[in-house]
Amino acid sequence: MSALQANARDTGQVMLKVVYALIPAVLAHYWLFGWGIVLNVALAAIFALGFEALSLLARGRDPRHTLIDNSALLSGVLLAIALPPMSQWWLLLVGTFFTIVVAKQLYGGLGFNPFNPAMVGYVVLLISFPVDMTHWLPPIALRGESLSLIDALSYVFGGQLPNGMQLDALTMATPLDVIRTQIGLHHTVGEAMSSSPVFGLFGGKQWEIFNGLILLGGLWMVWAKVIRWHIPVAVLGTLMLVALSFHLYDADRFAGPLFHLFSGGAIFGAFFIATDPVSAATSDRGRLIFGFGVGLLEYIIRVFGGYPDGIAFSVLLMNMAAPTIDYYTKPRTFGHGAKE
């Protein structure tokens, strides 16, 4: 090992910084949507760390050494933010089990997982429990009242809502859902957006603020060199460019680039999911291609596919392509001709 550590970066700290970058958005989400996200994050973090420790013990490793790399914590938090807020405990338990035990530890732990663990957990839940995965809480402003912490806890752990309250009354379709349904009913994008209260200025109401803070967190990570710019820029650039092309082609059927940017998990996916270095392509050029693929697939799945948002599937699909991308995007090594 070298005597001189040029920087004091440490893998555990890198992971922790990613978690820090999410704090403003999570707090905003709490203000705008209520306790749901806080419970999600807290439970998923506890489950993730628990599963990580158990898997490590089962694998004969010392959990004390490995838990401090904070990777399990991060995966849990990412999954928690991707799931509908105020998910019930068993949903989070199943999700973190697949995230930590199946997608990560069964492959050999941190650094050996070919797929993004949080997205594996997410997709398992999306396919297995599609109904529970659509229980998105609308902003407090639209709901008029907020569940107290006690009420929220009793729902998460016991499935019990306060007297006289129905789950359907609590949840609401997300903006991407509405657009999708309305377009399916041959309404124009404009009609869809004016028909539902979930829309804000150019994305989902209040989601714009949340996504804006996610974006700020992401930009901070780039500035702090926690991540590099290539993947987020490629993902969002491609998504917006494709969205713009379709929007220009037919503005009634295809929502504009800003709507796509600020709805659903586009920004979150671009900065926090697709940038997982373990499962992404590794060279700078490779990362641009990887991000391009994620952005393109995301748009295709959102607009033409069977799911309202496509970040999980597009990231997993590009994870599969990452080794091939890596092989064909090796940089020109010093002393090797411009073309080999």
């Binding site: 040029a6 920087n7 970066r9 440490d10 893998t11 555990g12 890198v14 050494h65 790399d69 990777s71 732990g109 941190l110 650094g111 050996f112 590099r228 270095p277 373990v278 992404a280 590794t282 060279s283 700078d284 890596d326 090796k330 940089p331 020109r332 090594t333 010093f334 002393g335």
Partner: peptide, 23 residues
């Protein structure tokens, strides 16, 4: 104790031979 490689690419940015040390 060395931790697992997370392929962050710092080595790649530092390599004077323009190799992919993580690979």
């Amino acid at each position: 104790t060395p931790k697992p490689c997370i392929r962050c690419g710092e080595c790649m940015a530092a390599c004077p031979a323009n190799l992919l040390p993580q690979q």
